[in-house]
Design a protein around this nucleic acid. Structure first.
Lengths: 343, 343
DNA sequence: TTGTAGGCGTTATCAA
DNA sequence: TTGATAACGCCTACAA
């Protein structure tokens, strides 16, 4: 049972394809009688316009591309969730691409998305990406584009991010307030906008408390497997060693916590641990992990909304802007009451 | 800068579109000289065939649809990861659809996938789905289809699953071996194949140990938020109350653990907890959670491999089959050494 | 060895 | 109010 086409309907009803096409789109130039006939028949045969043909014809494809480094990552899977929710409501489909943190794959994915004639792109940069010419080209072509989370401020497009500076500032401040002075920062590759902002927030808090910045305390992970252990060892070998860890991701936090416990270090007695995270089980960890949470789903939703706005009324474009969503600091150290601070 | 088409190349080189088309496909009937000319020019202009036109033409679209209940779920995001890896290597793209556990959306998504002319579908049933006519129709149309994880044995298609029976049997046996006798089973909706198989494994282990099956000890969740608490309360109100919980998912395990701790119940002293899970941090929980792990990524990979096989050589189809991948029981109770049992 | 024509499903333009 | 035709980008008989 091949899909029903306009041609089938035209044939069956002894009409021309153009008449059927117009009837289906409820055109004013078709008689009510013909419309009824066509509509009913189409309904009965469960006619669905072929989106491929529509795309080829040059109108919209009703598809959005989402390009992320990794799906199997709480932040991104939650963000995609938000994107998909909005897209679905507005009649768009979502085609997902993963870059696996590779610049090459990012470029290839962008090309593919374009040749698939998506109506717009949502993108979060790979950690390898420092050159954004491929995105500039996209913008020059007039392709609707919204960046989220890992963005490139120099690009004239809408960007949706969490308040990474504020979150890192709040996190570091909290550690300082509870008496920590040697705060290690275990973070993600330094090209990334979010890494830079978090580092800036961390430094700002240190400065505020008159604690000198020590670059030895900052280490960059690479998304490799089991990378936290060695980095933790390096940090513990410093003298004096850190009395707190501020990590920039779920993965680093879990790796760090595992490494610390394996080495018999009391958390948070000897060393405190606080992390950016989107994991659902931070409060069930041993010890419960204090966290800075990004509103992943909301970021996805907002980004998708902006993109669809851009697509559907390119003319009255309000121009690019950067949207910062607040992060939430949740303190879960067993010794103190549960507290929330919104940055 | 509009994308370059065959027509552009033909025009520039004073050739016909068919000659260019054939030259690009390295057809034997084109002179080496012309081929070189065309190839070089195409290269220079960075020509890429328009996949939309190709799809419309009726050949393959080089796209696969993946339909899952939820992306923001460790099992599925890891499975998609595996799918995407295989698909990418074989030159396919992945279009992802979420059903949000809704039968209606599942049907709609299948339709959409078909009208997007995907070359094949990978699907994991929604928890609402009991009627699989929409899939039977797909099969009748000759559309390549592979089911994974949540499958429907009655459909004559390739199915890729974890050994849910074996995993549940191993898990329950372990709890019985450690002296538990009132083992509650907190699981997912009963329509799902995996729920049934896990229940069967649970029952088989009980029988093996001569422990009578008590249906009061089995409760079904519905993927709602915060649903574990009430279910845990109901179970604890039984007399005698359970001395162990065997949960069927990450979500239920975390909900259950949270509920138990909130109620001041010692885990695993008073009540043991063991779960099917794909979370990365089970060993960092308090207490470390013993788990049965599904090879999510491998399931995705295998399913994608099978699907692509099906697509690329429909003729010598080897017929539908069910593939069961082993699960792994990891015991992490603080009182005993780390052990692994493969089912 | 190369070119011409038709078609995939749809819409837009122009004619009837 | 309806129909014929061309076009989107590509491929493939069939003709030259």
């Amino acid at each position: 049972m091949d899909p029903v086409t306009i041609k089938d309907i035209a044939h069956a009803l002894n009409l021309s394809t153009s008449t059927v096409s117009r009837a289906l789109r409820d055109s004013y130039e078709i008689s009510p009688e013909t419309k009824r006939l066509v509509m009913e028949y189409a309904e009965r045969l469960n006619y669905r316009p072929n989106p491929i043909a529509l795309s080829l014809k040059g109108s919209s494809s009703k598809a959005l591309a989402v390009i992320v480094p990794q799906i199997a990552n709480n932040f991104f899977s939650q963000a995609i969730n938000g994107i998909e929710a909005i897209a679905y409501n507005r009649g768009y489909h979502v085609i997902i691409f993963q870059t696996h943190e590779s610049y090459e794959r990012e470029v290839a994915n962008v090309q593919q998305a374009v040749s698939r004639r998506v109506d717009g792109l949502l993108l979060s940069l790979s950690s390898e990406t420092s050159d954004v010419k491929h995105l500039q080209a996209l913008i020059d072509q007039g392709m609707p584009l919204v960046l989220f989370d890992r963005v490139a401020a120099e690009l004239p497009v809408t960007q949706v991010v969490a308040d990474n500076f504020g979150g890192a500032y709040a996190a570091t401040s909290h550690l300082l307030q509870t008496g920590r002075r040697r705060i290690a920062h275990l973070t993600i590759p330094p090209y990334l906008s979010i890494a830079q902002e978090r580092l800036a927030g961390y430094r700002a808090a240190l400065e505020q408390y008159g604690v000198p910045y020590d670059e030895n305390l900052v280490r960059y992970g690479t998304f490799g497997p089991d990378e936290a252990g060695p980095l933790v060892d390096e940090l513990l070998a410093l003298s004096p060693p850190p009395d707190a860890f501020f990590t920039a991701s779920d993965r680093l936090a879990l790796g760090c916590l595992g490494a610390l416990r394996q080495r018999g270090i009391d958390v948070p007695g000897q060393v405190a641990l606080l992390s950016f995270t989107n994991s659902q089980s931070a409060h069930l960890l041993n010890p419960p992990l204090s966290t800075v949470t990004q509103p992943a789903q909301e970021i996805g939703q907002l980004a998708a909304e902006r993109l669809i706005e851009l697509i559907e009324r390119k003319h009255k474009s309000t121009g690019p802007s950067t949207m910062k969503l607040p992060t939430t600091l949740v303190v879960r150290e067993s010794s103190r009451p549960l507290a929330k601070v919104v940055s």
